[in-house]
Structure formats: structure tokens, C-alpha cells
Design a protein around this nucleic acid. Structure first.
Lengths: 324, 324
DNA sequence: TTGAAAGCGCTAACAT
DNA sequence: ATGTTAGCGCTTTCAA
């Protein structure tokens, strides 16, 4: 990589002259500017980013800590983050926590050395399970701005972008009841996530007579659901996560339920899974991309004004009914 | 963030003493080391990464340009990259090309200013379609080391990590023939990708009497496949990409094929889609994670020795038969 | 209109 | 055992 020094030497002018010429400063004569620009182009000069960062005391980089990159929902968020960051001339560094506290801590420490201007973070499942957020709130002491997305805790005081989980679960159950469904089952494999809790509460807020099947392992849910439908007639399922939705769908099909005539299945989701399921699942779309975009916006706002009060942005979900 | 300067001031020693003490230099007395360490811990001192990078003339960062982050295959590669990078104390910056040349160029220029030590790149679909790789080979002039993964071109001289696509398609067709399948259909939605071409050639190398359904749009494939199975008896499908596999599966089911008794479907894939399809697709697993890991390894080797001859690593696929 | 110098935070060769 | 100095590449203030 060519440096200002090399250019200045070859041109027989000072480093600062070259620097100013390249930033089109009014101090420099047109003749010199032209010469400098020509040589810079010839060598394809690009200011060394690291040096610029050191000087500017900013990196134009956002660190993202994401729980799981195999989850389409998070992938979509990441894509939204990347786009919005690029639009604002920021780079994105990614660290994947794999839903573990240890990797999450690693990621935070990885970013806590001036590598990034700020952090976007969705706490891992383990973090939520343990309810210990100290390593995250420690960012406040380090004066590293951060924004939580998707998952959050009352214990953490920060900017955040979340989904109206409670409301959308509640609305969906009401929708089912309106459609004349009477035996509603809520299935979930995300017991330990804050969002799972909120969705569950929302559903029960709409109706007390819901059957709840909530498990940690896929097989447990499969077994329980199979048992349930053999025992009693049900006519609607609300899945609090996509995997539960797909599993339920596949089982319902093995026992020859007509979908959606006899059984409506609606699932919180964002996924390819539901998109290419057969028949296509009805979903509660979580507008993941917007979550990503909004997180970046909130962080950039924070970077501009570190003293402002914390903001929460709530991204609305949309019920998408297929195959009705 | 605390700096060496601040620590040295508070301790009443020089900056270099602090620096040396923190790196446990033999030049510094135990007493001083202890004092320094204590204060550093108190303030949670971490060396400013940007300054270290500038000084070291290396960023310990790898730039990854990935065509599509919604494709589980690439996500898995990315995960492999991230893990292997972290293992070697490298960071990962991600740029998503969305299968377009323009974004790919943007990504390359984004990384070409000293932000990264090297680049991992899978060319976009558009790049492959147009066959123009100049913006990529330009990295050679800029002396930025790069490794291609998954997709490549004869036009590009570089390190690369690829799959034995030709061979595995060939082997799979042979496998089908061995199992007594006689009417084999090859379906594909990746006509324009180099890997698609290789797989196709491999399949035909195993048998000339294959029916080929190759389209750009999902609907075209759906229509053609439906027409075909109404017209003639078929007993095996080799899908060159996961989407084709799922589409074929869903259609075959609507016309009540017994799978796999009457119709074997095997798909190139890596996906959640095939994992949660019903019945579960048989797949040609591409070991995506290993592709990512190997790419990082190749790049790090290159960084150590820029003059070595270019290496190609071929990752073997594995045929995984389900529901037989 | 141009150049010299300082400084971002760090390391390391070279004094003391 | 500790300190001084130079320099990584850049921008910017101040001086010429």
C-alpha cells in the first residue's frame, strides 16, 4: 500500500501538502492538487484505515454479537444491520455466541479494546437462563455504547429494539377465537428465552383455556403433541417458535389432519423452514430486517449523543395467513 | 479507555516501563511489575487495538465476502470461518455481496484500505455469469492476499477451497444406478454457477440417459417437473441444489409418489430445509464448516509466506441416505 | 500556498 | 532496572 510519505517524496512536496490536496483543501493550488491527484490515482492510493482510525479515535466499525447464525431470524437481522451500517459508512464485525455465556463474554472482550465504536447485542439463551447480565452492563463502565436487540432484560438499562411479543401473541389467539377455533394449543421450544415468556403470557392473556406444551427438546415436544392429539380434539396451534411450528405441522400430517380446514397452525417465525414447508405455515412475521436496521440507527444516534436518555424501539409483527 | 500514558502518569514511571511490565519483560523488576499490573487491573486496561495494529502493520482481521447470507450453506461456512479465525486470534469482518458484482466490488474496496490482512471470497452469481474477474484479480496488484472458497474460475490464479462437485455428482448417479434406478432426472436452479456446471457434467459422466430439468425460476422448474412426471415414469431425482430438492419433493408428494420406495430423491444440500423436510431428504453433505475452516487456514498460511505457490484444497462430500 | 511539528497509543531499539 | 526516542500513517494547527 502506498503512503502519503511515498507520494510526497515522489512529488517533491511535503506530506501535509499531499494530505490537504487529497482532501481538496482550499489552501492548496489547483496545479498542485492536479499533480497529487494524478499520482494518487496512478498508485491507487487509499488512506490507511488503521492510521485514520487512530488519529480520529473512532473506527467506524460496529461489533455485533449474535446468539446463533443458523437461525434465519438472526441472519435476517444481521443482513439488516450490515446494510444499514454500510449505508452509513460503517463496517461490521461479527461474533457468534452460540447461545453460550462464555462465547458472549469472549465476544465482548474481543470488542472492548477499541476495535469497535459500539456494540449490538442479543443476549445468549444461557445468559437469559442464568439471569446474569453483569458482563453486559460492564460495558457501561468501559464507556462502550451498546444496543440490545430482540432479547433484553429489565436488569439492563440500555437502548433496545424489540418486538411486541406479548401483544402479537395475544392478538393471534384472539384471531383464532374469532375464527371459531375452540381448542387452542400453544407449543414452544423456547422456554428459557425472554421472548418465549412474553409470548406465552400474551397468549394466556387472550384466553385462559389454552393447552400449553413447552419443552426443551424436540423429541419431548413431538411425543407430547402426538399423545395430546390422540387424546383429544384440537383445532388450532400457536407455535411460539418456528421449529415447534414445523414439528407440529409434520406430526399433524402423519395423523392425517386436514390443514388448515381441521387444524390451523400459526407460528412465530421468519424462516425458510416455514416458507418451504408443505403446506405453507401461517406465520407471525417479525420483520427481522427492520430490527437490524433500527438497531444500527439507535447505536449511531447514541454515538452522536452519549448522554441522551435510553430509547426503546418496538417493531410491530404482522400476521401472515397462508393456505386458508 | 485508559492508556499507557495515564497509567504511567499515575504510577510516576515512564510509558515504556509500563508497556514492558505489562508484557512481563525481564527488564522490569518484580516490584514494579506488581504495581503496574495492579493498577492496570484496577482500570481494566486493554491495549488499544488500533494503535497496536498501526504499529504492527497488521490488523489480525480477515475480510469475508459472501454471496448470500440466507443460504444455510454459506452460513455454515461463515460459522466455520469465524471459529477458526477466533481460534487463531483473528477477527472477522463480513461483507455480503447479495450475488451482485456491484456489492462485491464495494466489499473489496471496503477492505482494500488496510482494514484487513487478507480476504476470503466466494464470487457472486453475477460475477460468474459475466465471467469478469478483474476486480478480484486486482487484489494481486494491491498485494492483498485472498482465498477463494466454494466458487472459483480458471481465470483466477489463487489459493482456493472447493468441493469435488464433479466426482460427487458422478458417484451419486452411479449409486442410484446400482440401486436399480433407471429413470433418473437431474433438477437444478443453479444453472449459472460454476458448481452447477460441474455437478451436471459429473452426473452425465456417469450416465448419458439422464433427463435434465434446469431453470432459473422456481415456478418454471415446478411446472416442468409436474409435466414430466405426468408424462413418464421416473424413479430417481438428483437435485443439484437444495431448493430444487425441496420443490421436487413437495411436488412428488402432491401426486402421491411413495418416497423413497417409488422415487429416490437425493439433493446437494447443507440445509435446514432438507433436515426438516418431510420425509427427510437424502443429501450430499458438503461439509460447509470445513470449507470455512480450511479457507482460514489457507489464508493464514499465505500471510506467513506470500511467495509460496497457490494451493487448492478439495473438501470431500458425503452421501447421506435417509428414510431408505 | 506550502511546510514543520505535534500527537493519536503503542512497541522496541537504544541510551542511561 | 528504568527512561528516551523514534516511528507506524494520518490530520491539523501553527508558522513561514
Amino acid at each position: 500500500m502506498v503512503t502519503l510519505k511515498q507520494l510526497s517524496k515522489e512529488l517533491g512536496v511535503s506530506i501535509s501538502t499531499v494530505s490537504k490536496a487529497l482532501s481538496d483543501s482550499f489552501e492548496i493550488s489547483e496545479r498542485t492538487k492536479k499533480k497529487v491527484l494524478a499520482l494518487a490515482r496512478k498508485y491507487n492510493y487509499r488512506p490507511n484505515n488503521v492510521a485514520v482510525n487512530l488519529r480520529a479515535k473512532s473506527t467506524k466499525t460496529i461489533g455485533v454479537i449474535i446468539p446463533n447464525i443458523f437461525n434465519h431470524f438472526y441472519t435476517k437481522i444481521l443482513s439488516g444491520i450490515e446494510q444499514e451500517a454500510k449505508r452509513n459508512n460503517y463496517k461490521v464485525i461479527v461474533s457468534i455466541s452460540n447461545e453460550t455465556v462464555s462465547s458472549e463474554k469472549e465476544g465482548i472482550s474481543f470488542f472492548s479494546n477499541g476495535s469497535v465504536d459500539g456494540i449490538l447485542l442479543a443476549p445468549s439463551e444461557e445468559t437469559e437462563k442464568l439471569g446474569n447480565y453483569k458482563h453486559i452492563s460492564a460495558l457501561h463502565q468501559k464507556e462502550i455504547p451498546f444496543v440490545l436487540f430482540d432479547r433484553y432484560s429489565e436488569k439492563l438499562n440500555s437502548d433496545k429494539v424489540i418486538i411486541n411479543d406479548f401483544d402479537s401473541a395475544k392478538k393471534t389467539v384472539k384471531y383464532l377465537i374469532n375464527k371459531g377455533r375452540e381448542e387452542i394449543v400453544v407449543v414452544s421450544l423456547i422456554k428459557h428465552l425472554s421472548v418465549g415468556e412474553l409470548r406465552k403470557k400474551g397468549a394466556f392473556d387472550a384466553s385462559k383455556k389454552i393447552t400449553l406444551l413447552e419443552f426443551e427438546k424436540e423429541e419431548e415436544l413431538e411425543e407430547a403433541f402426538l399423545k395430546l392429539i390422540k387424546r383429544k380434539r384440537i383445532d388450532a396451534v400457536l407455535a411460539l417458535d418456528e421449529l415447534s411450528g414445523i414439528i407440529t405441522l409434520n406430526i399433524a400430517r402423519t395423523v392425517a389432519f386436514k390443514i388448515p380446514e381441521e387444524l390451523t397452525i400459526i407460528s412465530f417465525s421468519q424462516g425458510v423452514l416455514s416458507e418451504y414447508s408443505y403446506p405453507k405455515l401461517s406465520t407471525i412475521n417479525q420483520h427481522a430486517k427492520e430490527i437490524g436496521e433500527n438497531s444500527v440507527q439507535l447505536l449511531l444516534t447514541r454515538l452522536k449523543n452519549k448522554e441522551a436518555s435510553y430509547k426503546t424501539r418496538i417493531i410491530k409483527t404482522a400476521l401472515e395467513i397462508h393456505q386458508t
